[in-house]
Amino acid sequence: MVAANTAKTLSVTLRVWRQASPAAPGRFVDYPAANVSTNMSFLELIDVINDRLTVQGEEPIAFAHDCREGICGTCSCTINGKAHGPGHGIATCQTYLRSFKDGDIIVVEPFRARAFPLVKDLVVDRAAFDQIIQAGGFVSVRTGAAPDANAIPVPKAAADLAMDAAACIGCGACVAACKNASAMLFVAAKVSQLGLLPQGQPERDQRVLAMVAKMDALGFGSCTNQYECSAACPKAISHDFIARLNRDYLQASVRAAFQPVSASTGGGAG
C-alpha cells in the first residue's frame, strides 16, 4: 500500500572506515543520521552525510559510485560485512534505507582484497580486473573482419546461458565476499560467456590458461567452493560457471601439454 510507504523515517548510525591514503592508518568513525527517509538510497545517505561534513569543514567520505542503477559496477561498499549490503542480487546503489531498522549501527567498509589496494576511505583500485580481461577476455576479431551476423548460428540455450554469464558488472563483490579474495567467479563468467559461443572457440584454451595465470599472478586467492561469491553477486551469477571454468582449465592444460604445435607460426611469404 502507498500509505505504508509514505513519510516514514528512521535514524541510523553509519560506522564508516576512514583512511586518508593507503599508507595512513585507518579507523572506523561513527556518523549518526537522524530522521532520514526510508525511501532514501544508501548512497544518498552518504551524500547527505558528506554535505554535512563539508559544511562542518571536514573531509567528506570518499566512496565509489556512478550509475546508481546497478549496472556500471562502480559502487563497492561492504555493509555489515556483506558486499553490496543486505539485499540479494542488487548492488550497493540499489540498497534503500528501508532495508535497515531504526537505531541500527551500519558498518561500512571498503572491499578488502590484496589485489584491490585501498585508495581512500571506501574506494579501492580494481584495475586488476581490467588486467585479467586484457590477458585474454576477448575474441580477437579486427573491426570490419566479421562475417554476417547470422552466418554464425548459436543455439538459443547456449546464447541464453552465455548471457547469464555476461551479465557480470565487474564490481568485485565476488572477491570481496570470498574469504579467500578469489576472483574465480569473475574469471569464470567471462571464460564461460565466450566459451559457450562458437565465436570464442578458436582461442578457448589459450584464453582460460592466460586469464587464470593472470588472476593468480595478481594475488587473488583460490576458490574453496563456498559459493559466497554467487550469493553476493549483484547479478546473481551462478557458481556453476566456476565448475565450467575448472573443467575448461583442466582440459586446456591437458591439451596444452600434449597437443603438437606447429614450428612455424609466422605469416605468408613477404
Partner: peptide, 12 residues
Amino acid sequence: DNQRARGADYGC
C-alpha cells in the same frame, strides 16, 4: 595464499 590474498581483514 588465501590469507595473503585478503590482506587487511574486515571489521565486520
